[in-house]
Design a protein around this nucleic acid. Structure first.
Length: 347
DNA sequence: ACTCTTCCCCGCCATA
DNA sequence: TGTATGGCGGGGAAGA
């Protein structure tokens, strides 16, 4: 099996931040190499302007999409081009022609790629390209909160959800802007190569390990380090003590807050309730243990704080869509092929 | 499948 | 008056 080819579509004025979300995650080397082959293409190969005063040299044209296993569209700033040329800042202003600036040739390439089974990811305003290509018809999708209304207005056939970080349909996925792009890419890596590998990648880039797609987009852009980082410390602490009872009372105590205030602040800043968050962490930890140990399911359940195998199974089905045993089996079957592939790359 | 208990989460409100 | 806190109670879900 040759390595998975990820092709990022660069387009002027390219958003560097959203591009680097894809670059960091898919280009990240773990133990010396990456499991993805990351390439770039653009409509007119050559120097591509970005949203800052740096140009990118991109040598491949749209033909590179033909053999992509995954296509990433890290933002689509065509709308800002006019503002930039006019000397304006462009942020916050909407251009009604946003979707119309998607060239026909690109739309066709995307159709072909999607039809032959390539996966298409959009980060932030990249969603508009997928919308214009008709790949989101009748499906749920998201984009930057600033653009949610615009997206919904222009494409009524899409179920626009502005309250999530990302939406993944398997063949097509969209995310909110900036940091949510990292979350989406990590989510993809996680499904491709498992939670343990994804955790290695996110550790490599010092990103928070896992945020579920249905978390709210940051309502006020408050970093977790607000309030002297009290919440961030509690999250770290809790992640290291999953086997112990993590009730709201216990967590609030760690944060030196009353339970009521803790729940309120937690949901505001993290985007989901403490209970949901703890549960997500526990299932996540269980996935990792299933992948890299041979511990019995019952033991794993106890170790991650889910008390019993019965309990673990119900939550596992809800989050992962399968049973722990099945998940482990599926994962270990893939293992030998991957190990061989790694040996080839590193050797 | 059932009960019983505990905990979650949120609205409401008094307080600082 | 505006803002953050935290106690209380209930509806409901989770777990034993």
């Amino acid at each position: 099996m040759s390595s998975h080819r990820v092709v990022a579509l660069v387009h002027p004025p390219q958003s560097l931040f959203e591009l680097s979300a894809a670059v960091q995650v898919f280009g990240m080397c773990v133990a010396g190499h990456s499991r993805y082959e990351l390439c770039f293409c653009t409509i007119h190969p050559g120097l591509v302007p970005t949203d800052t005063r740096i140009e990118l040299e991109v040598n491949e044209g749209l033909a590179a999409l033909n053999d992509a296993d995954t296509i990433v569209i890290p933002g689509w700033n065509a709308c800002r081009e006019h503002h930039a040329i006019a000397g304006g800042e462009g942020y916050g202003e909407t251009d009604p022609a946003l979707g119309d600036l998607v060239p026909r040739a690109l739309v066709e390439r995307l159709h072909v790629a999607h039809a032959r089974g390539a996966r298409v990811l959009a980060i932030g305003t990249g969603t508009f390209v997928l919308a214009q290509a008709g790949l989101l018809r009748g499906r749920r999708a998201t984009t930057n909160w600033q653009w949610v209304a615009e997206l919904a207005a222009r494409y009524p056939e899409i179920e626009v959800d502005g309250n999530v970080l990302y939406v993944d349909h398997g063949d097509v996925a969209t995310s909110a802007g900036v940091a949510a792009g990292i979350d989406l890419c990590l989510h993809i890596v996680r499904n491709d190569h498992g939670a343990a590998y994804a955790a290695d990648v996110s550790r490599g880039m010092a990103a928070p390990p896992h945020r579920a797609g249905d978390q709210a987009q940051w309502s006020r852009n408050v970093p977790l380090h607000a309030n002297g980082g009290a919440l961030a410390k509690v999250l770290d602490w809790a992640a290291g003590h999953l086997g112990e009872p993590l009730t709201v009372k216990v967590l609030a105590g760690q944060a030196r807050m009353s339970a009521r205030t803790f729940v309120r602040r937690f949901t505001e800043e993290v985007g989901e309730t403490p209970g949901q968050w703890v549960l997500t962490q526990r299932v996540s930890a269980a996935r990792e243990l299933l992948e890299r140990t041979d511990l019995p399911v019952e033991t794993i359940a106890v170790r991650v704080g889910l008390s019993s195998a019965v309990n673990l199974r119900t939550h596992f089905r809800r989050f992962v869509g399968t049973t722990p045993a099945e998940y482990r089996r599926g994962f270990q079957q893939r293992k030998p092929a991957e190990v061989r592939a790694e040996a080839l790359v590193s050797g």
